[in-house]
Design a protein around this nucleic acid. Structure first.
Length: 637
DNA sequence: GCCGTTTTCGGCCCGACTGTTTTCAGTCG
């Protein structure tokens, strides 16, 4: 069983126990275990083989025994018995807004309702309103909840939620009386997928802000509307919540609603140790006296801690690290010096080499690797060897125009074929400045086979970076079934960098694997996989993922100064990296012309060595994809 | 069910909003 399958099973157990009426702390324990199993960087089955299940946070004797039984026999008697006591389909009923364990249990026991379909039929038939504690309004809300559930498709990729959040924050900031407006929640923590949006406002006049929010054109339905809190469903199906408090309470408010829940629980325990109660309003002493915090730094300071960046707030050791003053200095988007994975019209990109280069340079980058697809990826117009050579001439010409301040590399995103062979032969690979190797096809091979395939690529002395290692696409396509620990160890051994693909549809490696990779000593690269100039602006999503993995700039090869990066590529030794030419050879070169928007691939006469690296040419690559986000949302439990 | 340099037993975060409630339960975050 995979970590995710184990996690899902324990979450279902928690749901069924809750409907059954089990004590809340037992339920919370299963939920906690479900979460830590899902977020564990190693395969739980490997941990199990080592007999170290109880080293996993939230896994004690009882849950360890259940995991052991599951992995040994493929079944769990406890769960089988539980399913005879509570219909397993009731867990899905819990996913309907406004239906919790008490109502689910009531529907089941009073009306024999065990599925969402049965619930809808009963609600529409007016059968719910006469149940104790319910009325017509409750019944109507449940119908709305079922309809909302049908519209939504689960969590939304960060890249889909982000622009919506930006628009609403901008709207809130422009309202009269609003001092500060921020988005919080998992979006602020840069989680790869978002369950809902949280907005927080500092203002002395909450009600006009509330009124403006619930009537915004993006709002499809108002779920709740109180004096300091409102909830709405947006036209795209996302739920959005707004809280408003006075400015002198904004620190505790922002901290609280940024989460994560687990981080907050730990924080409040720390507060209690100091005789303080912490809520979104303030710290409160036992005598009722409040300590107000206008910003988050003050909140952490009251607890004797340094500021903890939002991306780290997952209760994954950040509070312990903060307590010993051992928080890493996380990478920042401004640290990025290069992008080592980008496409042009030579394969499936939308802009020319020069256009992409100009876009990268405009954004402050110092180095760009053009990595078009290799030959076998026909659907992406992968480059034949002849075309790769022609592209080299164009890249060299562009480099000559650019002068010393910018390095343009010819690379390739080389397909790792189904048998593990790379899509160009060694001689071609050697002649490239940089090689990104990626899986795009046959992603559903069985674990041993696809792991071996990736290991073969990592062990090739011609590969510098593994692109989007698992091949996942958010929100719905799972990554390949890889033995990730084996992959990460091999990458650490061979010095191959693993990509955090910044496209919000990928964010691959994810935060959990990226953190494990760093623990094992891997190098990482944050690349946009840009197919258009706009895609360079997605880099911050990759940086957010790296920050969630506790990455510092020195762990990431494209934060390195260009000289260091080129030296690293030299050291990897398997291709003819052209160093800046000796000065005496340089003929009176034309002054570095400002790069202008050029036309097509143009064949160019022999390149001259220019200050950065120019190059001869060769082969071609193929394959990959960038697609626009899609998506939906719903209630996340 | 988990966890512990204050505990191997006794804790385990705190508040807003809604609806059907005459004082609070359920749900959510």
């Amino acid at each position: 069983m995979t970590n995710k399958e184990l996690s899902t099973l324990f979450a279902t157990i928690a749901d069924l126990l809750e409907i059954k009426g089990e004590v809340i702390y037992k339920i919370l324990a299963y939920r906690r275990a479900s979460q830590t199993l899902a977020e564990h960087g190693r395969a739980v089955s490997d941990v199990w083989k080592e007999g170290k299940l109880r080293d996993i946070p939230g896994v004690g004797q009882a849950i360890a025994e259940k995991i052991d039984e599951l992995l040994s026999t493929g079944k769990l008697n406890f769960f089988e018995k539980l399913k005879t006591e509570v219909p397993v389909t009731l867990a899905e009923v819990l996913a309907v807004q406004d239906v919790g364990p008490k109502k689910a249990s009531l529907f089941w026991k009073q009306l024999n309702i065990t599925t969402v379909a049965e619930l809808e039929k009963a609600a529409r038939g007016g059968k719910l309103r006469d149940l104790p504690g319910l009325g017509e309004k409750s019944e109507a809300k449940i119908i709305l909840g079922i309809e909302a559930k049908k519209r939504s498709s689960g969590r939304v990729p960060l890249g889909v939620a982000w622009p919506v959040a930006q628009e609403l924050v901008k709207f809130l900031r422009a309202l009269p009386g609003v001092r500060v407006a921020e988005s919080a929640g998992s979006l602020r923590r840069m989680k790869a997928t978002i369950g809902d949006l949280d907005f927080l406002v500092a203002s002395d006049q909450a009600e006009p802000v509330m009124a403006a929010f619930v009537t915004h054109p993006l709002v499809a339905r108002v779920l709740g509307h109180g004096p300091t809190k409102s909830s709405v469903e947006l036209t795209n199906g996302l739920q959005a919540d707004l809280r408003v408090l006075p400015p002198d309470r904004f620190g505790t408010l922002l901290q609280y609603f940024t989460g994560s829940k687990d981080h907050n629980v730990k924080l409040r325990e720390l507060a209690l140790d100091k005789g303080l109660s912490l809520s979104e309003h303030a710290f409160t002493r036992k005598n009722g006296q409040e300590i107000l915090c206008a910003n988050e730094t003050e909140v952490y300071k009251v607890l004797g801690l340094p500021y903890i960046p939002p991306e780290m707030r997952e209760d994954r050791g950040e509070l312990q690290a903060a307590a010993r003053n051992g928080l890493p200095r996380l990478i920042d988007v401004k640290d990025l010096q290069s992008d080592l994975h980008a496409h042009t019209t030579w394969s499936d990109g939308k802009l020319s080499v020069r256009e992409m280069t100009l876009a990268a340079r405009t954004r402050g980058l110092k180095c760009l690797a053009i990595t078009d697809h290799s030959q076998s990826l026909g659907v992406a117009n992968g480059l034949t060897i002849d075309r790769l050579r022609a592209q080299r001439r164009e890249i060299d010409a562009a480099q000559a125009d650019l002068g010393a301040g910018f390095s343009l590399l010819q690379g390739a995103e080389v397909e790792i074929r189904a048998d593990g062979q790379l899509d160009y032969d060694d001689a071609i690979l050697e002649d490239l400045d940089i090689v990104v190797a990626s899986l795009h096809t046959s992603l559903r091979q069985e674990r041993d086979k696809i792991t071996a395939r990736l290991l073969k690529a990592i062990e090739s002395r011609h590969v510098d970076i593994i692109g989007h290692p698992t091949g996942r696409l958010l929100p719905d396509r799972e990554g390949a079934d890889l033995d990730m620990d084996a992959v990460l160890r091999a990458a650490a051994d061979s010095g191959v960098a693993l990509e955090i693909n910044a496209n919000p549809e990928r964010l691959d490696l994810d935060d959990v694997y990226a953190r494990r990779a760093l623990e094992l000593g891997c190098l990482l690269a944050i690349n946009t996989d840009a197919h258009h100039s706009d895609h360079f602006d997605l880099a911050h999503f990759g940086v957010g993922t790296a920050r969630r993995a506790w990455a510092t700039a020195d762990n990431i090869i494209n934060t390195w100064p260009t000289e260091k990066l080129l030296h690293w590529l030299d050291e990897r030794g398997h291709r003819r990296v052209r160093r800046p030419a000796p000065i005496e050879v340089a003929p009176p070169a034309p002054p570095p012309a400002p790069l202008t928007m050029p036309a097509r691939p143009v064949a160019q006469p022999k390149p001259k060595p220019s200050t950065t690296r120019a190059k001869a040419s060769k082969p071609k690559p193929s394959s990959s994809s960038a697609r626009p986000p899609k998506s939906k949302t719903k209630k996340a439990r």
